[in-house]
Design a protein around this nucleic acid. Structure first.
Lengths: 143, 143
DNA sequence: GCTTTGTTACGAATTATTTCGTAGATAAGT
DNA sequence: ACTTATCTACGAAATAATTCGTAACAAAGC
């Protein structure tokens, strides 16, 4: 029950987490190289090292220091972290209303029919969950 | 090119913008009082004043200093600002995929049937737009 | 007129984040 | 063995955001 209260990662930390999520465990050298690719400008090696050390203290990553080149791995899951950040963002920007966020996300940008279909499937799933786990009567049937 | 791109507001600035969007133009005193209500702890009067002065320089607010108590008003629109922040957030957290954001927002939290219905209506509207305009050239935005 | 109250402007302390330089250790190359 | 390369740890500078104290000034109250 005691869920690790992983602190909210900063922008730089999040970028490193993306690298680790995609690439898997890696050395500082590898992480730094991958960061250089996804960015415009290179970042100093010791900068990456420093951030990883701070992330280790925060519990955002784990490391294997058996070898001289330590190997870092993400200690938080991608979806959980995204969910955490999303919660904060929804609170700060949309007053806590996830609905407003979704409306804004869908309304103010181009969404393909394919993406719309995926969202519809998700809506159907959620509706089924609502009706099976919720005592409130629900006779709606999606087309 | 004549329009200065309003910089991304910080968390504190965004909170003040929320107050101004909801309440309309207000003095520092009024803004500070309203901030105190929506927060856990009070914030110092001069803190609010200082942030408003910085926001004025950034172009996030305008002020009427005809009277001794200056009256501040939002200089950026709510939806535009939310859209701007949303873009940055989607890039940083979901690698630019608005679809992933929506899936996460809907999937990882409780969404009521009422909200689901609203989203369905929006999906229908978007689908109609997709089918009535040529998808290859409908990237125009209302100014 | 004098004092109290409320206001703006400004400087500065505090905290967080990002950045990198340098020292010291270990491994690798010759 | 010696030199070079690579790595970690650590300190600290640079930047940004938040906070508030104080000075200066104007208005209101007595």
């Amino acid at each position: 029950m005691s869920k690790a209260p992983s602190p909210k990662p900063t922008d730089s930390e999040l970028e490193i987490l993306h690298v680790l999520w995609q690439h898997g465990p890696a050395t500082v050298r590898a992480i730094n190289d991958l960061l250089g690719q996804r960015r415009q400008a290179e970042v100093g090696y010791t900068t990456t090292l420093k951030i990883l050390q701070l992330m280790l203290e925060k519990g955002l990553v784990r490391r294997d220091d058996a070898d001289r080149s330590h190997v870092y791995r993400a200690a938080v899951r991608e979806q959980e972290t995204q969910g955490l950040l999303l919660d904060k963002f929804v609170d700060a920007t949309f007053g806590g209303s996830a609905l407003k966020l979704v409306m804004q996300a869908l309304g103010s940008r181009k969404t393909s029919d394919d993406e719309l279909a995926q969202i519809r499937r998700l809506l159907n799933d959620i509706e089924i969950q609502n009706s099976t786990s919720n005592p409130a009567e629900d006779d709606e049937h999606a087309g």
